[in-house]
């Protein structure tokens, strides 16, 4: 055995951490610190900065209706997708857990959209929903609901609902596989014991099985939260960087992007890099607070269960 100095015995393991830490610090921690710094200056991103402005960016952001409207759309998306995941997703997982024939085929198909990029998903649904060449409208006409047909993505009443549908289509696979793996971990003896005690199928599920799915419930809720607060690609592809029509689908992701890089119809005065970074910092802090609350509540629920 090679002799090792006291120092290397105590700190030797850190050599393994060092290369990764350098990359992590340079491309994640430093840009974050830089983001905080940028949020205190006034800079359009081009040319010279107008110098330190203190909390002015924050004051402007926190009093701007655009921020709250975008955040509100993120919340609507999150709640809608959450409900779909925990009902339809759970339901489909329960069906798969009964191990029907072709179970693997069904699972492979239902998880497939998760693999597709959100850009591809956006195009798939642009085609489906298009008033000219889509198939949703003729489908509605075929079942006698022709009066509902419309140009879905341009209609302020339906545009956000379209985003929900597309986002749900892309993400339902997560709910299916997460709940399925949770269901497969429920010991069969527990269900049998409950059956002997006279519980019917419905009672067995809600009293015995569902509480044991708490880890799946937690994981799904947290990833749904992150996915829908960060959402950008789907909205960008379906309704563009201004959250058309009339800002009805504007979310935090598009708001930040538009503020930093502009969009059709924007003037150079609208493009303000340091203000965009401030919006992103606010988004990060809000997410951090919500996630820690969410995890605390959900973990407590897991322990009680």
């Amino acid at each position: 055995m090679r002799p090792r100095s006291r120092f290397s015995r105590r700190y030797g393991h850190l050599w393994f951490v060092l290369p990764g830490l350098v990359v992590f610090a340079t491309f994640l921690i430093y840009p974050m610190a830089k983001a905080f710094q940028l949020s205190f200056i006034d800079w359009s991103g081009l040319g010279a900065s107008n110098g330190f402005v203190g909390l002015a960016n924050y004051r402007e952001a926190l009093t701007s209706p655009a921020l709250y409207l975008a955040a509100w759309h993120n919340v609507i998306l999150f709640v809608a997708i959450l409900i779909i995941q925990h009902t339809l997703g759970l339901f489909l997982a329960v069906q798969l857990n009964a191990r029907p024939r072709f179970m693997e085929v069904y699972r492979t198909i239902l998880f497939l959209p998760v693999i597709l990029s959100l850009v591809a998903t956006g195009f798939i649904w642009t085609l489906m929903l298009s008033p000219n060449i889509g198939i949703l409208n003729p489908l509605l006409e075929a079942v006698g609901l022709g009066f509902l047909a419309g140009s879905w993505l341009d209609d302020p009443r339906f545009a956000l609902a379209c985003i929900v549908v597309v986002q749900a289509w892309n993400h339902i696979g997560w709910a299916v596989v997460l709940y399925l793996s949770g269901l497969q971990n429920v010991p069969q003896e527990l269900r049998e014991a409950a059956q002997i005690d006279g519980a019917n199928a419905w009672q067995r599920f809600w009293a015995v099985v569902f509480p044991l799915l708490a880890p799946s419930f937690t994981a799904l809720t947290v990833i749904t939260f992150i996915q829908n607060i960060r959402v950008f690609d789907v909205v960008y592809v379906l309704t563009g960087p201004v959250g058309a029509p009339a800002g009805r689908t504007d979310v935090l992701g598009t708001l930040v992007y538009r503020t930093a890089f502009g969009a059709a119809g924007a003037t150079t005065a609208d493009v303000r890099l340091s203000y965009a970074v401030t919006l992103a910092v606010i988004m990060f802090v809000a997410m951090l607070v919500c996630i820690s609350l969410l995890v605390r509540v959900l973990r407590r629920r897991e322990i009680e269960a």
């Binding site: 340079t26 994640l28 840009p31 830089k34 890099l273 992103a280």
Partner: peptide
């Protein structure tokens, strides 16, 4: 905790780096 960082926040400073 790096998992919680939104890309929107770091991508602009990353450009500079």
């Amino acid at each position: 905790s790096g998992m919680l960082v939104p890309v929107q926040m770091i991508v602009l400073p990353l450009f500079v780096v």
